[in-house]
């Protein structure tokens, strides 16, 4: 990969990040209703901590580092401004205090919810990538065959189902009905574990249904994408060349069609991976999974803006990094962009 390609992509990511930070700042400071109303509307804060927060966020300072006025024409430089203070606090990982969670810091609140989401969505992505890409390429390769008709039909239906539409019936059947799995949570409440293994097993039992839900939800999209990509590739001349070489059907798919068909899907998958952090909000709600998704909804219900803002920032960073990753992987897989 050439340094210029790399450099361009990194620059692009940084530019997007700056944009997101500015957007974040604007959403919460420039909205009518003043920063106090949105940022400090915290029932759990006393006057003292409000004053402390004001000082830390620099809410008394002017908004922007530069002020341009037209009448009379002037350009004022503010060495001390809210924007700079915001950048400083954000960069140091200080995202403010949560309203809802008794004044805990947003970073802590988010930190607790981080791993459950990563485990759930990470595993689901893994399953969905393997199953979805396999199903999609097998279906597209034998377009019009039985596997294609059935597989594509199922994929289209799954693709039309939000997570909660998949998850709720799963609970009804496998949890409420058959009683095979717990209906919600990540660990049995109040359980005393004999050993870490027991705890892990309990965790696994709780994980099955949410994992199935998110995987199924992702499989549809991946499979459809891979299928159309394979169909496009199937008609390419180099696939005919591979056939002319007398290769077996399976080698043609594996060595020639698949690596090329994979290219357009890499981007989509990598971007999706960025959302690992966002979690499958609705899936988490349905199973009451203590991840970032449920946190988002709780914060939403309580209008806990600092938390929402923090989550948005975190997700944006993850998505931007994932995009960067996608570009870099793409560069590895496709020699044409390396040059």
């Amino acid at each position: 990969m050439s340094p210029s390609y790399l450099g361009r992509k990194v620059l692009q990511a940084i530019a997007t990040l700056v944009f997101v930070v500015i957007l974040n700042f604007m959403l919460f400071r420039l909205m009518p209703g003043s920063p106090e109303r949105i940022l400090l509307r915290n029932p759990h804060l006393d006057a003292q901590s409000i004053a402390a927060a004001r000082a830390r966020f620099g809410l008394d300072k002017p908004l922007l580092p530069l002020e341009i006025s037209v009448d009379p024409p002037s350009l004022k430089v503010n060495p001390d401004s809210q924007f700079l203070a915001y950048l400083q606090t954000t960069a140091s990982g200080d995202l403010g205090l949560s309203f809802e969670f008794r004044g805990e810091s947003v970073t802590e609140v988010i930190g607790v919810r981080f791993w459950p989401t990563i485990i759930l969505i990470g595993l689901a992505e893994l399953i969905a990538i393997v199953v979805g890409l396999t199903l999609g390429s097998a279906a597209g390769w034998k377009r019009g065959g039985t596997l294609d008709r059935v597989g594509n039909g199922i994929s289209l239906i799954l693709y039309s189902m939000p997570y909660f539409v998949i998850g709720m019936p799963l609970i009804i059947i496998f949890a409420a009905g058959l009683g095979w799995f717990p209906t919600s949570g990540m660990l049995s409440p109040g359980a005393q574990y004999q050993s870490p293994i027991d705890q892990l097993l309990d965790f696994a039992r709780h994980l099955v249904l949410p994992l199935a839900t998110v995987s199924l939800g992702l499989i549809g999209g991946y499979s459809i994408l891979m299928r159309s990509s394979i169909i496009e590739t199937r008609g390419e001349d180099y696939v005919t060349t591979a056939r002319a070489k007398g290769l077996k059907d399976r080698s043609i798919l594996r060595d020639h069609a698949f690596p090329n068909a994979l290219l357009p899907t890499v981007t989509v998958i990598a971007i999706n991976l960025g959302y690992v952090v966002a979690g499958a909000i609705t899936a988490e709600i349905v199973f009451n999974w203590p991840g970032l998704g449920t946190l988002t909804v709780d914060a939403l219900a309580a209008r806990d803006y600092p938390v929402l803002q923090g989550i948005f920032l975190l997700i944006s960073v993850a998505v931007i990094l994932a995009n960067l990753g996608a570009d870099l992987i793409y560069g590895r897989l496709d020699p044409r962009v390396r040059a």
Binding site: E236, D237, T240, H256, N260
Partner: peptide, 11 residues
């Protein structure tokens, strides 16, 4: 084949 650009696997 005719168009060697496309007849060779690009990757």
């Amino acid at each position: 084949f005719q168009g060697a650009m496309n007849a060779l696997n690009p990757v």
